[in-house]
Simulated scan of single mutants.
Amino acid sequence: MIISTEPVWIGHDNELAELCARLRGQAAVAVDTEFMRTDTFFPIAGLIQLGDGKTCYLVDPLSITDFSPLRELMVDEKVVKVLHSCSEDIEVFVSLLGEVPSPIFDTQIAAAFAGLGFSLGYAGLVKAVLNIDVPKDETRSDWLQRPLSESQIKYAALDVAHMLIVYGKLLQILKASERYTWVKSDCADMVAAARKPDDFSDAYQKVGFAWKLRPSELAILRELCIWREVESRARNIPRNRLIKEPSLFEMARKQPKDAAHLQRIEDIPTRTLRNDSEKLLGIIHSAANTDAAKFPPRLDAPLAPAEAPLMKALKKYVRDTAEVLQLPPEILIRKKEYEAIVRSGMKGGVFTLPERLLGWRYDVIGKGLLAVAENPVLDADGIASI
């Protein structure tokens, strides 16, 4: 099937309404976005690409004033939105439309389950499935400039031109291997995660070396991280432009009492010191005087060398299982999930699985991982025979 790579420009509200009404009659639509995020927390949409399998449409978000037709299309449960590596695209739509597209089909996830490789780029996927070369030389273009260059327009159109054909090929492979439900489940999980309300209360746990801090210091770090998350969004600036995590760590550890002491903390931006010193000192003072009963518990230290054999056994089991399934092991389990299994046995004596391994993954690797955790000398063949 020949797809036109000469796109149709959508720059007026009536054009967008007509297009979206037509696309809502389809079973699936190809979707991509181009955006800028150099100096802002939230992405600024520069272009929205849509494809119906015949034509590419480039929607100009800088000239559209009524996005309600696009919003209705993105949340129409009867139309699958086909995207590639869509986590950032989801952020664009949340920022632009206030909605998470659903249902989605991420062709990067699907490619991994189809045995084409983990974290495969779109150009590589199109090459692997269709043997067509897709240029990627405009990735870092200025998508807010107008007019866009001819090469930008061509690049943007090609990002959706072949996507529905790739989608169809992947569906065939996944249904034949009975893995389509796995992809559908993982994509639904992405939507559910994106729809969760913001909760910054655990942000401090991601700060490097936070495990070294005492509970009283963690209470300070927790409040500083909440402030950083809230303010970076309110001011629409990148987190690190407001303040970096190592500076928050030092503030929690040293607990400066005045502006002079605060200035001695390394790498706090001059603007933050000028505008926010009083607020930061107030947060530190208030958190330091919190009731000790409300302090967070100490964080887990890195796993000790004594836990390495179990970790190695778990990874070997997943590698062996993935090899049998002809899948990349990374699509089955995340690094932090190995650690969670090991830690569960350390704390309570009974090994448990993270929530993500209790769905379809339970039968594929979950039961086996628990068996290995209880008896690390078992291999994949031994587990299969249990």
Rank of each mutant, 00 (worst) to 15 (best):
M1S: 13
I3D: 00
E6Y: 03
V8W: 01
N14W: 13
L16D: 04
E18L: 13
R22Q: 14
G25H: 06
Q26T: 06
Q26H: 15
Q26F: 13
A27E: 12
D32I: 12
E34Q: 10
P43F: 09
P43K: 05
I44G: 00
K54F: 08
C56Q: 04
T65F: 04
D66L: 05
D66F: 08
S68D: 14
L70D: 04
E77V: 12
K78L: 11
H84P: 09
I90G: 08
L96Y: 11
L97H: 06
G98M: 03
E99F: 10
G117E: 06
S119I: 10
Y122E: 03
G124M: 11
L125C: 05
K127F: 14
A128G: 01
N131M: 02
I132G: 00
D133W: 08
E138M: 14
R140S: 13
W143T: 07
L144G: 11
P147Q: 03
D159A: 12
Y167K: 03
K169Q: 13
L171M: 10
K175C: 11
K175F: 09
W182R: 00
D189T: 04
M190L: 15
P197H: 04
D199C: 11
F200A: 12
F200D: 11
F200S: 05
S201H: 13
S201L: 05
A203L: 14
K212N: 13
K212H: 10
R228Y: 10
R228G: 08
R235T: 05
R235Y: 07
P238I: 12
P246N: 03
S247L: 11
S247D: 02
F249E: 00
E250W: 15
A252E: 05
D258E: 03
E266C: 03
L281M: 07
I283T: 06
A293Q: 07
F295S: 03
A304R: 08
A306V: 14
A313C: 08
L314S: 04
D320W: 06
T321R: 15
A322D: 02
E323R: 14
L332W: 08
R343C: 09
K347D: 04
L357H: 08
I365L: 04
G366C: 09
L369G: 05
E374S: 14
L378Q: 01
I383G: 02
I386S: 07
I386N: 04
